[in-house]
């Protein structure tokens, strides 16, 4: 086969795995498009946006084994930059009358805006990454947490650009469920390709044994930085998809609640594999809908349950603690989906 001259065995296996995961995603998507109601469509869309976030997390956090808590901030940056670029001038004249640097005097095509948003997010991620990739594991986690707080305080403080706690409205709703399906399938292929690329292998090696990897000639800082920036591109795309579907954004969804949620998804599934990222996202996204239903205090079998605010947060915490205590590598551990099938066949 001529293809095998260009790609390794693992990469070929990665293509098969990505294909399988894509089938799963498309199946869920088709089910909801043909049989689902409007609110279910929104739930699936939100789940797929979170899938992009979790995949972006997996690229850095999973391969480098450094816990990152700043991802929602990068998603926010992507969403806001795209929103500022794409919103029509007339609406911006109302919503951002005092925007500096003529930000309210232009409007761009959605694709150009998305491209600018990705570029700016990646640039910022690169600058931050120069610092973060050099820190030891725990230092990097704390600095990423500080980064989340910084970005959030900027969103809240610069009300003339980001509208702070109020909603930034009037973003053209150009995305629907089909667009997010295509994007998430692409994202799976990219994340898996990175995992099996020589950078991904070097990064995973450096996570297992930093000194060992270094002695084999791995430039640890460089591969970490590459993964960090690539991850931020995923996050920017997630933010853009979020903004282009809902039409309004505010600073709140890009803060702790979202960080908790997506980290729990990745941990439950298993952060070392792309399969784990997909599995964890789907399980928690749809599981939480059930918990949210209980949270509102419904009537079950004639018994009126009390309103239980905070139940979903407790469940997420329990998921993390239990996973860590009993199976710290998550459901999938180190096994990707196609390896699982291979094992069954034998």
């Amino acid at each position: 086969m001529s293809l095998s001259a260009y790609i390794s065995r693992d990469q070929r296996s990665g293509l098969v795995g990505s294909l399988l995961l894509s089938c799963l995603l498309i199946a869920v998507g088709l089910l909801v498009v043909y049989f689902g109601q409007r609110y279910q469509l929104r739930i699936v869309y939100a789940a797929y946006v979170n899938l992009l976030v979790v995949l972006g997390l997996q690229v850095f956090m999973g391969n480098a084994n450094i816990t990152n808590l700043s991802h929602s901030a990068f998603m926010g940056i992507g969403a806001y930059v795209a929103a500022i670029c794409v919103t029509p001038v007339k609406i911006k004249a109302i919503s951002l009358p005092q925007a500096p640097w003529g930000l309210n005097a232009f409007a761009l095509d959605p694709w150009v805006s998305a491209f600018i948003a990705i570029a700016i997010t990646a640039l910022l991620a690169w600058l931050v990454g120069l610092i973060i990739t050099r820190l030891s594991g725990i230092g990097a986690t704390i600095v990423s947490l500080a980064l989340l707080v910084i970005v959030h305080s900027i969103f809240l403080h610069r009300t003339d650009i980001f509208k702070g706690k109020q909603a930034f409205f009037g973003i053209p709703q150009v995305f629907d469920i089909n667009s997010i399906l295509i994007i998430s399938v692409c994202a799976i292929f990219v994340a898996r390709a990175f995992r099996e690329s020589h950078w991904g292998i070097q990064l995973r090696a450096s996570a297992d044994d930093e000194v060992g990897a270094r002695s084999m000639g791995v430039n640890v800082y460089r591969v970490r930085l590459i993964a960090w920036v690539l991850g931020s591109v995923f996050l920017a795309v997630a933010g853009i998809s979020y903004a282009y579907f809902l039409g309004t954004i505010s600073a709140r969804p890009f803060y702790f609640t979202h960080v908790f949620l997506t980290v729990a998804m990745l941990i439950l599934g298993g952060m070392r594999t792309v399969t784990g990222a997909v599995l964890g996202t789907l399980l928690i996204s749809f599981g939480l809908e059930g918990v949210r239903y209980l949270e509102t205090g419904p009537e079950l079998l004639g018994i009126k349950l009390p309103e239980l605010l905070g139940l979903s947060g407790i469940m997420l915490g329990v998921v993390i603690v239990v996973t860590m205590a009993f199976r710290s590598s998550g459901i999938t551990g180190n096994t990707e989906i196609e390896q699982l099938f291979n094992r069954w066949r034998r």
Partner: peptide, 9 residues
């Protein structure tokens, strides 16, 4: 991450 989960709970 365990501590993170405990804090959430």
């Amino acid at each position: 991450l365990t501590a993170f989960g405990v804090s959430m709970i």
